[in-house]
Design a protein around this nucleic acid. Structure first.
Length: 293
DNA sequence: AAGCGAACCTGGCTGC
DNA sequence: TGCAGCCAGGTTCGCT
């Protein structure tokens, strides 16, 4: 489900409910998600206060007051929803209603501010772990992680360097989280269309030319943050499960130019092409072979 | 070594 | 209506 814009949407929804609050109680309804949950997961969270709530690529990071970080990944079908109890605002009288439990509500955080935060994940490709903040950067999950596409690091020169010498298709290189971390199938397809680049082109063909990053690399570096920022502003894309934490839908899917639009006319002004679907490394790619070269 | 396909899971949709 | 088959926003593993 969630690529960077969806995860950022979730982060923004959860932040005000989480930062400053403590975990009053945590319900763990099964031993594992994608991986076994950490030893004593519930005990390690209960009583802790959340001091910051951030994101790195597609990971949510809740900094706890004991120096640990609760790391959460939503996999393909993970989502959070927030329920506010009637007692919110009057400390000591929350009732955290249990009546609303749905199938696949695997983890529930009952917060000291009266908010109930439920993690639902039918496919269980998501996972949670607890890592000391000081060890986060060297943790296997994060050590080899690529650059943050909404940070300041992304520009044509960086793209050229990252892709230099790669024979893999651009599509695969953009999905490789060790290069740029946070893009997924939707936004890779959309970015490539905006940049006018074929998903089948070898990534290495964007490398530097005569000491300067190629025009193509610069265009790609420009459109990636553009499409991600527009998607964040739209609350992400709702294909099936993604919701903002208050239940409202994302609406960026209405602005897709290629994703899931096989057979439709290309929307690029003046282009007479038709959106095609091909399969690359086992995943659907949508693109216009007329204007994407 | 890089790159590709399969695997991990459940559910929704399509077509027979 | 029923059921088989296919597909899905991610990541990792293992083979070539």
């Amino acid at each position: 489900m969630p690529e960077l814009p969806e995860v950022e949407t979730v982060r923004r929804g959860l932040e005000p409910a989480m930062v400053g609050a403590r975990f009053s109680s945590v319900e763990q309804n099964r031993p594992d998600l994608r991986f076994p949950l950490p030893e004593r997961f519930v005990e390690r969270l209960q009583g802790r206060r959340i001091v910051a709530f951030g994101r790195r690529a597609k990971y949510l990071l809740a900094d706890l007051d004991d120096g640990n970080v609760l790391v959460m990944h939503l996999g393909m079908s993970g989502s959070f929803r927030i329920e506010r109890s009637a007692g919110a605002g009057t400390p000591g009288h929350f009732h955290h209603p249990r009546s609303s439990a749905l199938a696949h509500d695997h983890i529930v955080f009952n917060m000291s501010n009266g908010v109930r935060i439920l993690y639902n994940d039918p496919r269980r490709f998501g996972f949670m772990l607890v890592v000391p903040r000081a060890e986060l950067d060297t943790h296997p999950l994060f050590a080899g992680m690529g650059i943050e596409p909404l940070g300041n690091e992304l520009d044509g020169a960086v793209v050229a360097r990252l892709f230099a010498g790669k024979s893999a298709p651009l599509k695969a290189a953009l999905l490789d989280q060790r290069l740029i971390a946070g893009l997924g199938n939707i936004y890779v397809c959309e970015a490539l269309h905006r940049a006018g680049l074929s998903p089948r082109r070898a990534a290495g063909t964007l490398a530097r030319r005569n000491g300067a990053p190629s025009e193509r690399a610069q265009r790609l570096a420009e459109v990636i943050p553009q499409v991600l920022n527009e998607a964040v502003a739209a609350g992400g894309s709702t294909l099936r499960d993604h919701r903002q934490t208050d239940g409202t839908l994302g609406y960026f899917q209405h602005r897709f130019h290629v994703y899931d639009r096989e057979g439709e006319p290309c929307q690029r002004p003046g282009c007479r092409g038709t959106i095609r679907r091909i399969v690359q490394s086992g995943r659907s790619t949508f693109f216009c072979s007329v204007c994407q070269k």
